[in-house]
């Protein structure tokens, strides 16, 4: 098959909070908790940001970097578990905001943290079947942990967009596999503000089992082993799980350094693996091979085998927007302002 990434863009809000600041409020040693999770800080969306604005920002960056007419986009899918509307698609607003409307199909996806990679797979299928010329796949979230819940130390905001097509590729997707079961490790009921999770059940029977199974499917299908890849990106609910599972398979820290962003931005859920992939593409050399393994609670894994093409060098010389998470302009918030920004303070009604 010949399909791949034509353009990409990632977006992470500028605001940050440290685990120490969160722990202080709940009587917990936040710094130690952060260390345990491998998280130095997490991103926070501004009060005027949500999944729609993040998706648009990422999609615009993706379009800016490549020379594709928005009219040629035949499909847009936005994966998220925090779409601002329960009914009314994020994807329609993104379509208008990048000038792709009206001649396209669009929909929103939800599959916990792997809705974005599910969107990539859908776009691959549509492109390969010649139903569309280009498809835009976006994963973005502004997820929340309940106040005081361990998730509060990691749940953050960000997203990434990929323009998928056959022409002008900068990276070819060699293969994709999935592994899906009914495993209730994490969920959010309709109308509830915060998700619930099953504690340590989210580990072995959920994250580790699905990623292991899906990874072996991908190795088997491609006849590869960890050494064949220069980069590996695993779903990253915290800074520790991906390192642990990568190591168990035989991936070294050098292979994972660009794809692991959770330590400095937190867990961006549907944005996590997509953002890791944008950061790898920012740094990868032509010919580099990338191992991508997403995980979504509920539960399932999507795996991708990607090869970077020579054209990435020209792409990066153009109007390309790199993901710079380490920029100097970060704005740090204390817990009170974080709570205000995230709507955790009960306000007087109108």
């Amino acid at each position: 098959m010949t399909v791949g990434i034509v353009g990409y863009g990632g977006y992470v809000p500028k605001y940050r909070i440290t685990p120490d600041n969160i722990g202080k409020v709940w009587g917990v040693d936040g710094a130690a908790r952060g260390k345990g999770l491998g998280i130095q800080m997490k991103s926070i969306p501004s009060p005027d940001e949500d999944v729609i604005t993040i998706a648009v920002s990422a999609a615009r960056k993706a379009m800016k970097g490549c020379d594709v007419c928005p009219d040629d986009i035949g499909a847009i899918y936005v994966g998220s578990e925090s779409h601002p509307y329960a009914v009314k698609p994020t994807a329609t607003i993104v379509s208008e905001a990048i000038g792709a409307a009206p001649d396209l199909t669009a929909a929103d996806y939800e599959f916990a943290c792997k809705a974005g990679t599910a969107a990539i797979q859908t776009c691959m299928g549509l492109v390969l079947s010649d139903m569309v010329k280009y498809g835009m796949a976006i994963g973005a979230d502004t997820s929340q942990g309940a106040p005081g819940d361990p998730l509060e130390y990691s749940a953050s905001a960000g997203g990434a967009a990929f323009l998928i097509g056959k022409e002008n590729m900068i990276a070819e997707i060699n293969h994709t596999v999935s592994y899906t079961t009914d495993t209730p490790d994490f969920w959010r009921r309709e109308g509830q503000m915060y998700p619930k999770h099953a504690g340590r059940f989210t580990g072995e029977p959920a994250y580790f089992k699905h990623i292991n199974a899906c990874s072996h499917k991908l190795f088997q299908a491609m006849g590869t082993k960890p050494d064949d890849y220069q980069h590996a990106i695993f779903h990253q609910p915290n800074g520790k799980f991906p390192l642990r599972i990568g190591k168990s398979m035989g991936f070294g820290p050098d292979q994972m350094k660009y794809g692991l962003l959770t330590p400095i931005i937190g867990n961006t859920y549907s944005g996590a693996v997509p953002l890791g992939l944008t950061n790898v593409l920012d740094h990868a050399a032509p010919g580099d091979r990338i191992f991508v393994m997403a995980y979504g609670s509920g539960a399932g894994s999507d795996g991708f085998d990607i090869t970077v093409k020579d054209s990435i060098e020209d792409y990066r010389k153009g109007d390309w927007c790199s993901l710079d998470c380490s920029n100097q302009d970060l704005i740090y918030l204390d817990y009170a302002n974080y709570a205000k920004f995230r709507g955790k303070i009960k306000m007087g009604g109108v």
């Binding site: 501004s46 009060p47 005027d48 940001e49 949500d50 729609i52 604005t53 648009v56 920002s57 615009r60 601002p84 509307y85 009314k88 607003i93 905001a97 109108v350």
Partner: peptide, 19 residues
């Protein structure tokens, strides 16, 4: 940049635009 401009209350539509 593309941001939220406001909304018609908690249940209403959300308005987006430039900042």
């Amino acid at each position: 940049v593309f941001r939220k401009l406001g909304q018609e209350g908690e249940c209403g539509v959300i308005h987006y635009g430039y900042k």
